[in-house]
């Protein structure tokens, strides 16, 4: 559950932190599209690599590494599951099955990397504000903001729950893959239930303080899209089209 730490925003003063969330969002969308579009492992590795300079400039390597390391178990699972499905049930040759499971796994890691970079360097408040400025209804923006806000709470709670279940003899690392996945049930159920309880609590607390009483909201602080943001978006767009041309000109899969 430490994997959450790899997505948790920490204040920073680097140029990446200072970018307008909308600029980073453009990058996120473009490269997510690429990751879904391509199945060539080399291109997927390039997409993965695109986040590395950002990680370096933002100096969030250790946090980013947590999310990458934490996703390994899922990656292994995705790889194995795809391999089995494609080879045994899909009737593909071993080579095709391995190659396509491999790209599935790299795609997943690339997406994790892109998202981790985004969330590590973008404050939830700025994110909400940028959504509002993009004319997304405030209720949705707020829902998103609160979801983000509760990630650290959730990860702490997951730790408490694991402690409690281990104290009752639960051994998370015991058994084969299926058994290990099953071991998560005693952790996930209390986590989900207490999230619901908390959601209800927060809703009650907000309504009792007259949330939504005034329809027109104003902001103290308005985000500005500046020269640096334009530069960043241009670089993102240029690399996007460069990668896209591989498909258009060379028909890379």
């Amino acid at each position: 559950m430490k994997v959450f730490k790899g997505f948790e925003y920490r204040r920073g003063t680097t140029p990446i932190h200072a970018l307008d969330p909308r600029a980073k969002l453009v990058y996120l969308m473009l490269f997510m599209a690429l990751a879904i579009l391509y199945s060539n492992p080399l291109v997927l590795i390039m997409i993965f690599a695109s986040s590395l300079p950002m990680v370096a400039i933002a100096r969030v390597f250790s946090k980013w590494a947590i999310s990458i390391r934490g996703s390994f178990i899922f990656v292994a699972f995705i790889f194995l599951f795809n391999l089995l499905a494609l080879y045994f049930w899909g009737g593909n040759t071993l080579e095709v099955a391995v190659l396509s499971s491999l790209s599935m796994a790299i795609r997943f890691i690339s997406l994790i990397s892109i998202f981790s970079t985004f969330f590590l360097t973008t404050s939830p408040e700025d994110m909400t504000q940028s959504m509002v400025q993009m004319k997304i209804p405030y209720d949705y923006a707020l829902t998103f903001n609160m979801a983000m806000r509760f990630v650290p709470t959730l990860s702490k709670e997951a730790q408490y729950i694991m402690d409690a279940q281990k104290s009752r003899g639960l051994e998370m690392e015991k058994g084969n893959l299926v058994a290990r996945v099953k071991n998560y049930i005693p952790v996930l159920i209390p986590l989900i239930i207490s999230s619901f309880r908390r959601a209800e609590l927060v809703a009650d607390a907000m309504e009792s303080r007259a949330f939504g009483a005034s329809k027109k909201r104003t902001s103290i602080y308005v985000l500005r899209f500046g020269g640096k943001d334009a530069l960043f978006v241009s670089i993102a767009l240029a690399s996007f089209f460069a990668l896209l041309s591989l498909r258009l000109l060379l028909s890379v899969p």
């Binding site: 709670e157 408490y160 729950i161 402690d163 409690a164 279940q165 281990k166 104290s167 009752r168 003899g169 049930i185 005693p186 952790v187 159920i189 209390p190 239930i193 207490s194 309880r197």
Partner: peptide, 16 residues
């Protein structure tokens, strides 16, 4: 844990 039973403060952290 077989010898030491620890009951945490919040029961919702263990009931499932």
């Amino acid at each position: 844990a077989r010898k030491v039973g620890l009951v945490f403060q919040n029961p919702d952290h263990q009931l499932f």
